[in-house]
């Protein structure tokens, strides 16, 4: 593979993939929190509508939704979405529905006494959600969100079928140019694996941060473990709880 192919296709492809991941993660997070909180709402109607949304978007495939937004919406509505936006919208809406289930589960797992304490202090429902429930629920969501984000990263590869120039699309073009599939497809698989590793690591860091915010001392991360081991060797052989944090 020549340098020109790298510079013109593969590197911009990586950038497009990262952008897609970022934008659709933002959309998905917004949808997940809105729908997930709506599923714990007092009103039956709100709960039903939110449940309906999750079942519809979890029931259908992200790729079908993407095709639908790309081919069906333009003639029905009279306007055309840029492929990139159609992709972000489809990914955000369907992965948001998965995220909503995570948010709902985490909100339900907060001890009921916490909510009751909020009622006793006459917090408004929104204050209870913002000040009591969410800070405790968010660290619970982090491991599941981490998995979902890796799924979302894998989902971004689908956009190449709509002609968005991401890593998979670049791989396709390079294959046509070089007639050598093994090399470029191995490279692009490795690119995705590295991106996924970066995503997992940053989500782990975020999880530790959110835990520390509510006073739970998290397990040390990758670097924390290294420092902890050094601290142990140098001094008396006992470790400080939590290590260097």
């Amino acid at each position: 593979m020549t340098a020109g192919l790298w510079q013109n296709w593969v590197l911009p492809g990586i950038w497009i993939t990262v952008q897609l991941l970022f934008y659709s993660a933002v959309v998905a997070t917004a949808v997940a929190f809105a729908i997930g909180m709506a599923r714990t709402h007092r009103s039956r109607l709100v709960r039903f509508l939110a449940g309906f949304y999750t079942e519809i978007f979890r029931g259908t495939s992200a790729l079908v939704l993407m095709f639908w937004l790309f081919f069906v919406v333009p003639p029905l509505m009279g306007w055309q979405l840029v492929p990139m936006y159609a992709a972000v919208l489809a990914l955000g809406l369907s992965y948001g529905a998965y995220g909503a289930e995570i948010v709902r589960g985490a909100l339900n797992s907060v001890a009921p006494a916490q909510r009751e304490a909020g009622v006793a202090l006459s917090f408004t429902p929104w204050q209870r959600m913002r000040l009591i429930l969410l800070p405790q629920a968010v660290p619970e969501m982090m491991p599941s969100f981490c998995n979902l984000l890796v799924e979302l990263l894998k989902g971004t590869a689908l956009v190449s079928l709509l002609g968005v120039g991401d890593v998979s699309f670049a791989a396709y073009l390079v294959r046509l140019a070089t007639q050598d599939s093994a090399q470029i497809y191995t490279v692009s698989l490795v690119i995705y694996a590295v991106l996924a590793f970066a995503v997992t690591r940053s989500m782990k860091a975020l999880e530790r941060k959110t835990k520390r915010n509510i006073g739970i001392e998290p397990e040390p991360g990758l670097f924390g473990r290294v420092f902890e081991r050094q601290a142990q060797d140098k001094v008396t052989g006992t470790t400080m709880p939590g290590g260097a944090s």
């Binding site: 890796v150 894998k154 971004t156 590869a157 689908l158 190449s160 294959r175 497809y185 996924a196």
Partner: peptide, 22 residues
């Protein structure tokens, strides 16, 4: 772990285009 964190789409292309080369 590698298979799980890489997209099915790219794996499909890998099998579809690379295996015939072998």
């Amino acid at each position: 772990e590698f298979i799980r964190t890489t997209p099915l789409l790219v794996q499909l292309f890998f099998f579809y285009f690379v295996l015939p080369e072998w």
